Simulated assay, not measured.
Amino acid sequence: MTKQLSDKDIENTLSMDAERRYSYLRKEVVANREIWILVDDHGCVMLNTEDEDCVPVWPNREFAEMWANGEWEECRAESIALNKWHSRWTMGLEDDELAIVVFPNTENDGLILYPDEFDQDLKKQARKTG
């Protein structure tokens, strides 16, 4: 079971730039063995850039839930086990030609990665901490 984040932890993490949030996400995902997305009755939430359709991912429930407001207030945070991510999601996202936006903050700022690149970074993090 993952520990609940304090308000101070959340505030400090959200103040990081996109690269540091990505580093934080890799460590949290590998340590907790889960990735968080937002879903509704039609599937997972998508963000769009000029070039890419993206699935946003977060390292912890609290960060995903922060996005469940406004047009997404009907959404709920859902975790995906890391081994399920590796075995199903990476290939599925590639097949659907979707990218990943990693840990977007409330200003929609987040790194955009291709699924295979994200998958390799998570595996590299696991080897580093394993």
Rank of each mutant, 00 (worst) to 15 (best):
T2L: 11
K3P: 06
Q4L: 13
L5T: 05
L5Y: 11
L5N: 07
K8C: 04
K8F: 09
D9L: 08
E11L: 11
N12T: 15
T13K: 10
T13C: 12
R20A: 14
R20M: 10
Y22P: 00
Y22V: 03
L25P: 01
L25F: 10
L25S: 07
L25V: 01
L25M: 09
L25W: 02
R26F: 07
K27G: 09
K27C: 04
E28G: 07
V29M: 05
N32G: 09
R33N: 12
I35M: 11
L38W: 01
V39W: 00
V39M: 10
D41S: 15
G43M: 08
G43K: 11
V45M: 10
M46L: 15
L47S: 10
E52G: 00
E52D: 13
D53Q: 14
D53H: 12
C54I: 01
V55H: 06
V55Q: 06
P56I: 06
V57M: 05
F63Y: 13
A64W: 00
A64V: 07
M66A: 06
W67V: 07
N69K: 14
G70K: 08
A77D: 02
E78I: 08
I80K: 03
A81F: 13
L82R: 05
N83T: 15
S87K: 15
R88W: 13
R88C: 09
W89I: 10
W89L: 11
G92H: 10
G92M: 14
G92N: 15
L93F: 08
L93K: 02
E94D: 09
D96A: 11
A99Q: 08
N105I: 04
N105E: 04
E107I: 00
D109M: 09
L111K: 12
L111F: 05
L111S: 07
L113P: 05
L113G: 03
Y114E: 09
Y114T: 05
D116W: 07
K124Q: 13
K124W: 00
Q125K: 12
A126N: 03
R127C: 06
R127L: 10
K128E: 15
T129H: 00
G130M: 03
G130L: 06
